[in-house]
Simulated assay, not measured.
Amino acid sequence: MVKTREILIIITFFSLWLTNYFAAGSQSILAFSLLFSVGLIHGSNDLQLLNKTFFKTKRTTFFTQLGLYLLVVFTAFALFFWLPVVALTLFILVSGYHFGEQHWDEFFGRSVWNKMFYASYGLGILFLLFYLNPEDTTAVIEQLTAFAVPKDWFVYGLIGSGAVFGLLLIKYAYQQKIAPAKLAQELLLLVVFTILFYWASLVWAFTIYFIFWHSIPSIKEQVQYLYGKVTKKSVLKYLRGAVWVWLISMVGLLVFFKLMESGNQSFLTIFFSFLGAITFAHTVIISRMFDQQN
């Protein structure tokens, strides 16, 4: 585990170093290439996970499962256009919990306090990113919602989530639920994230965190859950199962963007609406996966 973290830290700083050699436009192209490939792939096996987590002991057809999944995705997607402020708020809350749960679940469990810990950690990461990139963050939010968010909100969000996370972390350390070495690693990691978010642009910083610290570890956990162990063969099986959903997602996103091209929606608006729509369903499925593993 330590070795993996050390490799990820090296990759993080290498990715940060690359920003010296890429203009902002090139960074965005590289960032979206990673988000469209690894980022979407990590959520493209949701149907197989849905079958195993919710319907393994129930007699339901593939099309019933697909219909339920698409209903959630399209409802969430529509929410970004009908009630964008509500949708974005839910997206941030759900994403924060999802990031924290994926990062910490193997060390704790499924109690209410632990879930609060996961949410506070993930929200702390997001608000740290927003706080260190206030101009770009407010611009993206205004594109999505037509609402100009006061920059002080990022401070309040960071202080609030950070305080809850810090208090629970102290509680767990006092109860010896987290080893001193692990505590030191996690605090060092927060320093690494702070450096990353401070020096990189909003999109590039989010991409590095999302791909290397969330998506790739999540793929590893999904492969372990679906196939029992992580091997070259099981990873390839996972990718074969995910690729057709990934292709459909890419085609759907492209078609929808073309349909909306004549309107006022920017590519960024459509992309984050699409990402948010998938995130709602994905978070429920992954959380159920963790429930069954504990």
Results as ranks from 00 to 15, higher is better:
residue 5 R to V: 07
residue 8 L to N: 14
residue 28 S to D: 07
residue 29 I to V: 08
residue 35 L to S: 00
residue 38 V to K: 01
residue 55 F to N: 09
residue 60 T to G: 12
residue 60 T to R: 13
residue 63 F to L: 09
residue 64 T to L: 06
residue 64 T to D: 10
residue 65 Q to M: 11
residue 68 L to H: 10
residue 70 L to D: 06
residue 70 L to G: 03
residue 71 L to S: 11
residue 72 V to Y: 07
residue 73 V to R: 02
residue 75 T to Q: 07
residue 82 W to M: 05
residue 90 L to F: 09
residue 93 L to G: 11
residue 94 V to C: 02
residue 95 S to A: 13
residue 106 E to K: 10
residue 106 E to T: 15
residue 112 V to F: 08
residue 112 V to E: 03
residue 113 W to E: 09
residue 122 G to M: 11
residue 127 F to L: 09
residue 133 N to P: 04
residue 135 E to C: 08
residue 148 A to I: 09
residue 152 D to V: 15
residue 152 D to F: 15
residue 154 F to N: 00
residue 155 V to L: 14
residue 158 L to A: 05
residue 159 I to A: 08
residue 160 G to L: 10
residue 172 Y to P: 01
residue 173 A to M: 03
residue 176 Q to R: 14
residue 178 I to A: 05
residue 184 A to M: 11
residue 187 L to C: 08
residue 187 L to S: 05
residue 197 F to N: 02
residue 199 W to A: 04
residue 201 S to E: 02
residue 202 L to I: 00
residue 203 V to D: 02
residue 213 W to Y: 09
residue 216 I to R: 03
residue 219 I to R: 02
residue 221 E to A: 13
residue 222 Q to Y: 04
residue 224 Q to K: 12
residue 224 Q to E: 15
residue 241 G to V: 05
residue 243 V to W: 14
residue 245 V to Y: 15
residue 247 L to N: 06
residue 247 L to S: 11
residue 248 I to D: 04
residue 258 K to Q: 15
residue 260 M to L: 15
residue 266 S to K: 12
residue 269 T to H: 06
residue 270 I to V: 13
residue 270 I to A: 06
residue 271 F to K: 02
residue 279 T to Q: 10
residue 285 I to C: 05
residue 286 I to T: 01
